[in-house]
Nucleic acid binder design. Structure first.
Lengths: 251, 251
DNA sequence: GATTCCGAACATCAATCATGTTTGTTATGT
DNA sequence: ACATAACAAACATGATTGATGTTCGGAATC
């Protein structure tokens, strides 16, 4: 399954709202049959909607693509950021790890460590299920479709009952002006609960997110202790965060 | 990975307490290198312990083999039992599904149904994560190593806060005299909590379990509403259960 | 110090998966 | 109703992966 082609298709359809199978086959160089199969897949993920002859986009602008697609996005960068974040955690700590693709990488980076970890997504829980030295604590909740992040009152109640040394929080947008933001309201509520039950808050955010703001406000940037981002993060963004009292680490 | 060979090895080692690599290679017809790789795998799962030249069993009699091995055991029968149990559940119900290999099959059988389901293991949660019409509720808790059943105070608290129409409960032993029993104390406590929060309790048990009793007592048989087992369940066992007021279904 | 066992590295085979091609069927438009 | 375009099932192909076997240098045991 060529991830590149899926991305090309997603982008092309999103750009003009709709594309024909023939156009997409020409664009990608793949056969029409392959395009049809791809469209079927993307339709299942809720990215687009099939109609006879083509497909129309279901992603509104400002909406995030599904997990399976984002997971293919710059995995190399995410791993570097995750490794840097993991390095900020000391053995023996208790850590709550947020949902999202970047945080999933953080969870993987903690696999061999000696910690108490509460992951906030099924993905991360699975990644850590066979970790030998880890005390794994799962919160209750409802796994969000596709994302598999745990949400709802059960999740918030589980978090409220516990106190962690560190929270690793992912985001969809993070700026000094708008603070840490997320696309999903339920996710945002869980993030807030996780932050409320942690002594120290570390955000992980690819550079692109530092100039983006999503719908749901989670917390102001000043509430963060550290942000881990990529090396090509724009200086204005990181500077503004530093001015808020946040430590910025580039991976 | 030949499941047959792993079973042969496990049985042979358990029978005589220890076996040499050479013996096992002869017995299974595989090369010594393959046997070594298998032993490494089984050692990771805690089935046996390597020593130079062979391996010795770590499974005490009366102890259950790890999940990965049991999952390969008579999958056909388990699916039939699971289908029968699933048929006892009406659309719209709320159901709590226990951990274990048989209950995992029940979860799979519920995949396309319209229900509210709380699985008590990560395995089952994963199997149901992409179910389109299902409301999935995860309890909190600690995933038990290998088994991935959720245990601990978080799990019991999650269950105590909810009321279900039906509980599907797995077991290690089930007799009219000794009731429903499990190998693991923590699992048993969770089972009890699940049963306490359900109006109706259905146990699933392969025929072999109807003449077995494990360490931890969960509930007396009379507390069950129905038992689903295989068609070749011994008549004395099923008769004794019926005498306790339990409905017995053979799949 | 000799022998036996081990495990890493490579080779091989089978199974699986993604993709393309063919062909009969279905849906759309006139 | 008929013609055409799109579709999807079935099969073919090539690439990738995973299990197994073999060889060989190194380590543990006697």
């Amino acid at each position: 399954m060529s991830a590149d082609r899926l991305r090309q298709i997603t982008d092309a359809v999103r750009e003009s709202g709709r594309r024909s199978v023939l156009e997409l086959a020409e664009l990608t160089g793949a056969s029409e049959m392959t395009i049809r199969r791809d469209l079927e897949l993307l339709a299942e993920q809720g990215v687009l909607e099939r109609y006879r002859g083509g497909a129309r986009s279901l992603l509104l602008r400002g909406e995030e693509p599904p997990f399976a697609l984002r997971a293919q996005d710059g995995p190399e960068l995410k791993r570097r950021i995750a490794a840097e974040a993991a390095a900020l955690i000391a053995d023996g700590e208790s850590v709550v790890v947020d949902s999202g693709t970047t945080c999933l990488e953080v969870a993987r980076a903690l696999h061999h460590r000696r910690l108490t970890v509460m992951p906030l997504s099924l993905q991360a829980a699975n990644a850590l299920a066979d970790a030998p030295q880890l005390t794994l604590l799962l919160p209750g909740g409802q796994p969000r479709r596709g994302e598999l992040s745990l949400i709802g009152p059960l999740t918030e109640a589980s978090l409220a009952a516990l106190r962690f040394d560190t929270a690793i929080i992912g985001c969809c947008g993070l700026t000094a002006a708008d603070g840490l933001t997320a696309y999903d309201l339920a996710d945002a509520a869980v993030k807030r609960a996780a932050i409320a039950s942690a002594r120290r808050v570390i955000a992980v955010a690819e550079p692109a997110k530092l100039s983006r703001t999503a719908l749901a406000h989670v917390i102001p940037a000043s509430r963060l202790h550290a942000v881990v981002t990529g090396e090509d993060a724009p200086a204005e963004a990181t500077g503004a965060l530093t001015a808020e009292g946040v430590i910025v680490r580039k991976a």
